[in-house]
Simulated assay, not measured.
Amino acid sequence: MHLTRFRLNAARPGARKLIASPQALHAAVMSSFPDLLPSAADQPRVLWRLDRNGNAELQLYVVSAGRPDLTHLVEQAGWPAAAATGTPGWRTYGYAPFLDRLGKGDIWNFRLTANPVHSVRVRDGQPTKRTAHVTTRHQIDWLLGRQEIGGFRIQEKPQDRRHTEHGDLHQLVVRDQRSLEFRKTGSKAPVTIKTVTYDGRLEVTDSDALRKILTEGLGKAKAYGCGLMTLAPLAT
C-alpha cells in the first residue's frame, strides 16, 4: 500500500478545474495508474481526498495498492518548472509499515472527509431514498455510529470542556461542509453530493478493522473524494 501527497497550484486554470469537479479529479487520480482498467470491477480501491487548508494550500492525498505517477497532474495543476529541476511535485510513502504498527489502545489525531447519508422513506409503500445528513448533530452521530465496525473510539472531552446541552462531548470538529454538483459522463441528470470534513482524536480498539477503513474507506461516494481517513501523531 502507498500513501501519496500532492500539492495543487491554485493559481493554475487546470487546478481550478479539478477543484471544481470531483468527477474530473477522480478521472485525473485514476489516470495515475496505468495498470488499472476503468471498466474492471475487481480492481483495487483507490481512495483520495482534497484538503483545503487555505486559499493557496490545497493538498491531494491518495491511498492505493499501486504506486502512482502524477506527472500529468504536475503539468496540469502543479509546478512543472520546479519538477524540471528534479523535484517530482509529489511524494509517495510506503503505507504498509505504518499500518502494521497500529495497535489497540493507540491514540491518534485523524481527519476524514465523508458523505454522511441515511435512508428515508417519504411515503408508505415507496422505496427508501438516500438522503444527506444536513445538521452537525446528525453528521456527528453518523460517525459515532460507525466506531465499532471501524475499529476506533472517538475520544471524549475532559469534563470541564464539555457542553452537554449541545451534545458536545467528543474531541471532534465538523468543518468544511460542501454541496458538490456535477454530471457523470454521458448523463444529463446532475449528481449532488454533500461532504463534510471531520477533525478529531481517536483510540484504536481493533487494529485490523481500522486498517480496513484506512485502506478501503468509510461511507459512500468514495470515487468522489469521500471515505479517506488519515492519522497523525498527537502534538508533543
Rank of each mutant, 00 (worst) to 15 (best):
G200P: 08
V120G: 07
V134L: 14
P97M: 06
A221S: 15
Q171D: 09
D35F: 05
G145M: 14
R12H: 01
E57D: 15
G14M: 09
K184L: 12
A41G: 05
W79I: 01
Y224R: 09
P158C: 07
H163F: 14
A84P: 01
E165N: 07
N9F: 02
L234I: 13
R162Y: 06
K220F: 15
F182V: 03
V191F: 10
T205S: 04
H26Y: 14
I19Q: 08
R101G: 01
D124K: 08
G219T: 10
A114K: 03
A65K: 13
S179G: 09
L172S: 06
G86I: 00
R16P: 00
L50K: 04
V62I: 15
G105N: 01
T4R: 04
A56L: 13
A20P: 00
I149H: 12
A209C: 03
V62M: 08
L180F: 04
L8Q: 04
D206T: 06
T236C: 01
H2L: 03
D176P: 02
P34M: 06
G145L: 13
V191G: 03
E148N: 08
L73Q: 03
G225Y: 12
S21W: 07
Q171C: 10
E75H: 09
R5P: 02
F110H: 05
T135V: 12
L172V: 12
T192F: 09
Q59H: 12
Q147P: 03
N55P: 11
E181W: 12
R5V: 14
G125E: 05
D100S: 06
T197K: 04
A235C: 04
L47T: 10
K184H: 14
T85P: 00
L202C: 06
P22L: 12
F182C: 02
L47A: 09
I213Y: 06
L18R: 02
P13E: 10
F110M: 07
R7H: 08
P38K: 12
T85F: 09
P97N: 05
Q147N: 04
G125T: 05
R16W: 00
K17A: 14
E57C: 03
G86P: 01
R146Y: 03
K104N: 11
D35Q: 15
L231S: 00
A232V: 04
A132R: 04
A84G: 02
A96S: 05
G227N: 08
P44G: 09
P116I: 09
P116C: 08
Y198S: 03
C226I: 11
R101K: 06
E75K: 10
T135G: 05
L214Q: 00
W108T: 00
P44K: 12
R91W: 14
L112T: 03
